[in-house]
Design a protein around this nucleic acid. Structure first.
Lengths: 112, 112
DNA sequence: GCTTTCTGCAACGTTTGGTTGCAGATCAAC
DNA sequence: GTTGATCTGCAACCAAACGTTGCAGAAAGC
């Protein structure tokens, strides 16, 4: 019954910039702070900080390669995050349906 | 292809305290700033500010009743939010599966 | 009436997302 | 190998968001 959401994971994907970064990394396979910041409305520094946060919760990996740092999404962890999103959404849906059911039952009783 | 997420709606449900408030309102049908703050680890003031935010994006309604303010969830809007969560989650899932499929195809080609 | 209780407003502190500026490290070209 | 371009991290700083406390106003209960 409990939603059992990992707050750290949620807050990591709660930021819109970080969500777009994950989308970019998914679409292009990998990216560096510089390449990512070129397609985002924020500076390289901001991107870099976000990557540290995403790395800390395990949503991405780093592979230092020479002078640049190549980041990739951790597929298992992102799948876990996606599952949590779906879980919260479906929990809300279920409760809403239950409420709607109760409301309709009252309605029927009044119409009787 | 685009996820088309409403950033305001998302950031409203991105805050853990607001998510718990929505859960409480769903479970108990309604609540006031005072009753909600009793079951949350924050003060009434914080709850009150969050309710304003939730109201602004339409996730809750207010019904002033004497000296207290009764808040309820807007079912349609919450359903919309739940759908967005599920949407982002399934989009990620789909992309992950596609990547996994490509990886396996490469694997098969190498094994040939 | 008087007290209690629910509320909003204002001031304040802390964290977080963002910026700019600067210095270190690596690659590439001469 | 020196020089120059580029990728990076660190530090200082700013603004917005989340949280607090303190106070004043309005409605209920006595």
């Amino acid at each position: 019954m409990s939603v059992a959401v990992d707050d750290d994971l949620w807050s990591a994907i709660g930021d819109p910039t970080r969500r777009r970064m994950l989308d970019l990394l998914l679409a292009e396979g990998a990216g560096t702070p510089t390449t990512l910041s070129e397609r985002l409305p924020v500076t390289r520094q901001a991107v870099s900080k976000h990557l540290v946060i995403l790395d800390r919760v395990g949503l991405v990996h780093v592979t230092p390669s020479g002078r640049e740092k190549r980041y990739q999404v951790d597929e298992a962890q992102l799948a876990r995050a996606a599952a949590q999103l779906a879980d919260v959404g479906s929990t809300w849906d279920a409760r809403l349906r239950r409420i709607k059911g109760i409301a309709e039952a009252i309605q029927r009783r009044q119409e009787k």
